[in-house]
């Protein structure tokens, strides 16, 4: 029961990301999603009585709900970017596409992977949906910040998949992944500033000097 609520919350947060039209709304929804992800890890920790899972939960909360949103907000504050995300697909249509992905992921988890446990199957369906929608956000929003968040959303989905179907990765692997995400965010921040300085915008659809 508790698990279903957490999974639903996670999915709803993803839908919020899909319909967001402004950068701050996107970051806020990302934070909500990260909180649900850490709740999921907390639940797993409680049910499996694994100390490691509590550490993972804490790390998710600190890294994804506090540090990363902070870095993203710092980016938009420093470069004074317009709030508009530059949607190539409007929110209504995005939501319909998101629902389509959700249904397809459900079919995928149900048929292709043939998981017997219903909760496991639902968790996998949610995680595949989130991976797909993260990708969708990356390709259908013009601002560089949306591409960063899209990628992080994909990683959240993969984290859920890993703990849903295989009971979590080995502990040191999880830690290594956190390190990787941290490095990614730090480095991408540097590049956003560089893009902004040279192009005076962070609109990736207008980056067209390289062709062919």
């Amino acid at each position: 029961m508790m698990l279903s609520i957490i999974l639903s919350g996670f999915l709803v947060a993803t839908f919020l990301l899909v319909v967001a039209k402004r950068i701050t709304a996107l970051i806020r929804s990302f934070r909500i999603q990260a909180i649900f992800l850490s709740l999921y890890a907390l639940y797993m920790g409680l049910s499996q009585r694994h100390l490691e899972m509590f550490i993972v939960c804490g790390l998710i909360f600190v890294l994804k709900a506090i540090v990363i949103p902070f870095v993203l907000l710092r980016i938009i504050r420093r470069i004074n970017v317009e709030e508009d995300l530059g949607l190539l697909v409007n929110p209504q249509l995005s939501l319909i596409i998101a629902l389509g992905f959700t249904y397809l992921s459900y079919l995928f988890a149900h048929n292709a992977m043939a998981l017997t446990d219903p909760v496991e199957s639902a968790a996998l369906a949610v995680s595949i949906t989130v991976v797909c929608l993260g990708f969708f956000i990356m390709v259908s929003r013009m601002k560089a910040v949306a591409q960063i968040i899209g990628l992080l959303v994909m990683e959240n989905g993969i984290f859920l998949a890993a703990s849903a179907i295989s009971g979590g990765m080995p502990f040191f692997v999880e830690i290594a992944f956190f390190f990787d995400i941290f490095v990614f965010v730090i480095i991408i921040e540097v590049f956003v500033y560089k893009v902004n300085r040279l192009f005076t915008h962070i609109d990736t659809s207008k980056m067209k000097s390289l062709k062919g």
């Binding site: 991976v131 990708f135 990356m138 560089a144 591409q147 990628l151 994909m154 990683e155 993969i158 998949a161 890993a162 179907i165 295989s166 990765m169 990614f184 480095i187 991408i188 590049f191 560089k194 893009v195 040279l198 192009f199 990736t204 980056m207 000097s209 390289l210």
Partner: peptide, 27 residues
Amino acid sequence: VKESIEAAWKYIIICSVGITFALLGVI
């Protein structure tokens, strides 16, 4: 310069997305 930063940006984003799909395969 503009061109090289654009190339670097595309490089990071496209390869990171690619490798995220690979991570799903690993899982």
